Simulated assay, not measured.
Amino acid sequence: MKYRHVIWIVALVLVLDQALKFWIKTHMNFSQEFIIFPNWFRIHFTENPGMAYGLELGGEWGKVILTLFRLAAVVIGFKYMKTLVKQQHHTGLLICGALILAGAAGNLIDSMFYGLIFSETNFYDVATFLPKNGGYASFLHGKVVDMLYFPVYRGYLPSWVPFKGGEYFVFFNPIFNIADAAISVGVITILLFQKRFFHKHIAKEATEKEAVAATK
Rank of each mutant, 00 (worst) to 15 (best):
L116V: 07
E210A: 11
P49A: 13
P174F: 09
I36N: 07
N173Y: 15
V212Q: 13
G97Y: 09
I117H: 03
I76F: 14
R154S: 07
I188R: 07
L130N: 06
I65W: 14
M81I: 13
L191D: 09
M51Y: 08
A137M: 00
L16Q: 10
A11Q: 06
M112F: 07
W160Q: 11
I24Y: 05
A211V: 02
N39L: 04
G106V: 02
N173K: 15
D125G: 06
N39T: 15
P158D: 02
F150N: 11
Q88Y: 06
I117M: 00
G77L: 05
H199I: 07
G77Q: 12
H199V: 08
F22Y: 14
R4T: 09
T128G: 01
T189H: 06
N122H: 05
P151D: 07
A203R: 07
E60K: 11
F169T: 02
R70H: 06
G165K: 00
M1E: 03
K164F: 13
V74T: 11
N29Y: 09
F118S: 05
N122Y: 04
E56L: 05
T26M: 13
K195P: 04
K209A: 14
T83Q: 13
G142N: 01
Y153I: 02
F41C: 09
P131K: 03
A19Y: 10
L99Y: 03
V170F: 15
G115T: 01
A211L: 15
K164Q: 13
K82P: 01
Q18C: 02
I9E: 12
F193Q: 11
S159W: 05
V145Q: 03
A127N: 02
F198A: 14
I24F: 12
P49C: 03
L130G: 03
N177L: 06
V170G: 09
F176N: 13
A11N: 05
I109Q: 02
I24D: 00
L66I: 04
V161M: 14
A203V: 11
G97W: 07
V13E: 04
I35L: 08
V75Q: 00
S119V: 01
F176R: 10
H90Q: 14
M147C: 07
V74R: 11
Y80Q: 13
K2I: 12
M28P: 03
W8S: 09
